[in-house]
Amino acid sequence: MKASTALALALTSLFVCACGGSDEREEGWGSSAQAAIAPVKEEIEVPPPPFSEGIFPCSDCHDPTLPVNTKRRQLSMAHQEIDLKHDVEHRWCLDCHSATDRDKLHLASGELIDFTESYKLCGQCHGDKYRDWRAGVHGRRSGNWDGHKTYLLCVNCHNAHSPAFKPLQPKPPPTRPHGGDQ
């Protein structure tokens, strides 16, 4: 009796373990492990990032031969218009922008990425949104439901320096029945 209960328990726990490593988690871990071995170049088509006019490439002003002041400080010579409202206590320019290659962003790992891949950078903190975005649930897509589609980048809707979605002016309300005399 006891032995059979123990066996049943063991079997149950085995079953639970097997279910615990559900496909979602396994897939997640599996793919990242694979990515670590052989990075897969993803083909996600995105529109150009919404740069302010004349601001890119950054190296036009940030001469790569000059030393970079990496100290956190109030900017006084340029970019004063940037009002950082993005976890400002913990973030500063060089947490996202690369100090070594001025035309790139960098991930927490130090890996340099282009501005067109900025979603990877955002996804480091906003993992749930990143997952939904890649599944096509968060964010806006255009093109074909059944084929080629363009994803908007995070920064096409959220200003990276102040990411809260800004209120919009609504289009006019519908006219009421009977010519609006109600």
Binding site: G139, S142, G143, W145, G147, K149, C157
Partner: peptide, 19 residues
């Protein structure tokens, strides 16, 4: 095979469509 017009225009990406 295209998305409906309302899906493409939605500025907050609230509209989703598919098979």
């Amino acid at each position: 095979g295209r998305y409906p017009a309302c899906v493409e225009v939605c500025p907050v990406g609230a509209r989703k469509f598919g098979n």
